[in-house]
């Protein structure tokens, strides 16, 4: 190329940044096509009274009706409440279980590799397969859980897991925790392995017991990892669809209807794509705000 009439010497110091732009262009174009463009279409649709959306149709008049209806809808506030409950329950359980298992498999013991594999296994299982397994475990008539509870004498009659709002919520939360905790565990394990051993040696010399070492060395050192992981788990719960949809479809009585299930239902069951877009846009805003707040509040150390 050098010396040609239209050659471009990217090695020249004044043009070095061009190479960066050139290399970034395909990725930027791809992201614009598959994320930014649909996002703008969705925002635009949310301000129109659209049943089934078609891109080749003329734009409908601007309206705020979808948002007015949304904020006055009890279903929307119920979906917000269900989403919040799931986030609180699943995120905290995932963090506690993930951290506990990470601490466990960070120790040296026989069979540690197998233990690490077992801890990470649920993460590798496809969501739909996990859902099928849990649907069988919690089957009201022939499920394992009713049999175990009855055998242990915890209950005297079977629980209709998917016909009771509280039980259905518990099933969904349990499945999500099982599927989600290995991610926290893997991230925490990576964080644990980066803590210098010297810290612990110095603490032992100073007479710190195991609990004190956890409280004053392990947890503060892990906080940046836990902060980012919490946000990622939270966002996963916000957008997760398949676990809830396959297990309960959002029922019974909307007890497991999250914002993502509501968006899907409005768009593809009731064909109200303008309204569904409004739910989606509000969900996006909530996600951004929640992620921002969590990141800001997560301290670097305790």
């Amino acid at each position: 190329m050098a010396g040609g009439r239209f050659s471009l010497d990217l090695a020249r110091p004044s043009r070095q940044h061009w190479l960066g732009y050139v290399l970034l262009t395909p990725a930027v174009l791809l992201i614009a096509a598959i994320i930014v463009y649909p996002l703008f279409v969705s925002i635009d649709l949310s301000f129109q009274n659209v049943g089934i959306a078609r891109l080749d149709q003329p734009r409908r008049p601007f309206t705020l009706a979808n948002y007015e209806r949304l904020f006055s809808s009890p279903d929307f506030w119920n979906a917000c409440w269900v989403t919040l409950k799931l986030i609180l329950v699943v995120t905290s359980a995932c963090c506690v279980l993930g951290l506990a298992t990470a601490l466990l498999v960070n120790n040296r013991f026989r069979g540690r590799s197998v233990a690490r594999l077992l801890v990470a296994m649920p993460w590798a299982v496809p969501e739909v397969i996990a859902v099928v397994i849990f649907a069988w475990i919690f089957d009201s008539s022939f499920g394992l859980m009713n049999w175990v509870f009855l055998s242990l004498g915890f209950i005297d009659r079977t629980i209709n897991w998917f016909s009771d709002p509280d039980a259905a919520f518990a099933v969904v939360a349990t499945t999500m925790i099982w599927k989600g905790y290995p991610f926290v565990s893997i991230m925490s394990l990576a964080g644990l392995q980066s803590i210098p051993e010297d810290y612990y040696s110095a603490a032992r010399v100073d007479g710190a017991n195991a609990l004190q070492r956890l409280r004053f060395i392990t947890l503060p050192s892990l906080m940046p990892v836990i902060g980012v992981t919490t946000v990622l788990v939270m966002l996963w719960i916000f957008r997760d669809f398949s676990i809830i949809y396959v297990l309960t479809g959002g029922g019974p009585l909307k007890a497991t209807q999250t914002l993502s299930i509501m968006t899907y239902e409005q768009a593809f069951s009731f064909f109200r794509m303008g309204y569904a877009s409004a739910v989606g846009v509000v969900t996006l805003v909530i996600c951004v705000v929640a992620a921002k707040l969590t990141m800001r509040r997560a301290p670097d150390t305790l």
């Binding site: 008539s141 009855l150 079977t158």
Partner: peptide
């Protein structure tokens, strides 16, 4: 007799 109806 396991306490769970299995015929409907």
């Amino acid at each position: 007799g396991d306490g769970i109806p299995d015929q409907f």
